[in-house]
Design a binder for these strands. Structure first.
Lengths: 145, 145
DNA sequence: TATAGATAAAGGTCAATGATAGTCAAAGGA
DNA sequence: TCCTTTGACTATCATTGACCTTTATCTATA
């Protein structure tokens, strides 16, 4: 996919948040716009379309001297983990039935999926997924680059 | 039979998908139309008549600047597999909601899980799983021997 | 010294424009 | 008749810039 300016700014912000501890960064709107050689309102647009609560982010700001834009990634709320775990239980149960997978492999799969999706950070997860692409690709002939 | 424009565009798209690594391509509607010297809506027509879910394809698109049309071939599978796929769809949908995973990562995860559980042989699957144990173990400190 | 008003330094809003893709109905052709 | 082809019109997403609002700081004056 050809990346738009909006896409690139979005990525950039996410990298900054990933690097931060506290899942939070503060930027100067004008400065970020300068970095990407665009108008400041472009940044506002990116925030409005890619960093909403629905996307899992909260943005706050202050105008005037010493102003800033603060972007915080909110961690998924507690109850959600149990739903994912239930999904995984279900998936593995069906795997056992349909694909004749034994209990020990089933246990392993359960553990792997739970760890992958509920314990790893987004960055770690992406690293693991990209290696998984390579590994699986070996068998199904995907071209990885 | 004399090939219609629609036939030729269909063929062309299928060649592109065959060459692609992940059974998926992204095109610019206008550009493809240009290639075949026809109106853009002709491309829409081809997609609507030859690349439906029934034919084994999923199409997605985005309008506006840097827009695209994405065409994915989904491999058809026997009865019980559809239950696993439904499980995977559900799991990924919940992941998107709860863990704020974007569409592109979601697609990757779906593809990986489907391949891992419905396309690989038991032996291949076990090899991949053992690699996965190692990879994830790196991050969570599992002792692998 | 206290403070009101001026000025500077942020960020916000919104409408216009550009860049894509989608819809639909009419016309064409085998 | 049924499928294909075309094009005018529509919908959506991205980008820009003029104008607005808020906050901090400076300055003149009682």
């Amino acid at each position: 996919m050809r990346k738009s300016l909006t896409d690139r700014i979005e990525e950039y912000i996410k990298v900054l948040i990933n690097r931060s501890d506290q899942q939070q960064i503060e930027i100067q709107r004008a400065e970020l716009a300068e970095t990407f050689s665009c108008v400041p309102s472009q940044v506002t647009y990116v925030l409005a379309t890619r960093f909403t609560v629905k996307h899992g982010y909260i943005t706050e700001s202050k105008r005037g001297g010493k102003g800033f834009v603060r972007i915080t990634r909110v961690t998924p709320h507690a109850g959600s983990d149990s739903r994912l775990k239930a999904d995984i239980q279900e998936l593995v149960a069906h795997l056992k039935e349909d694909r004749h997978i034994g209990e020990s492999e089933a246990r392993l799969i359960r553990q792997l999926l739970i760890t992958l999706f509920t314990e790893l950070s987004p960055e770690q997860r992406q690293l693991v997924l990209s290696r998984l692409v390579k590994d699986i690709g070996l068998y199904v002939g995907w071209q990885t680059d």
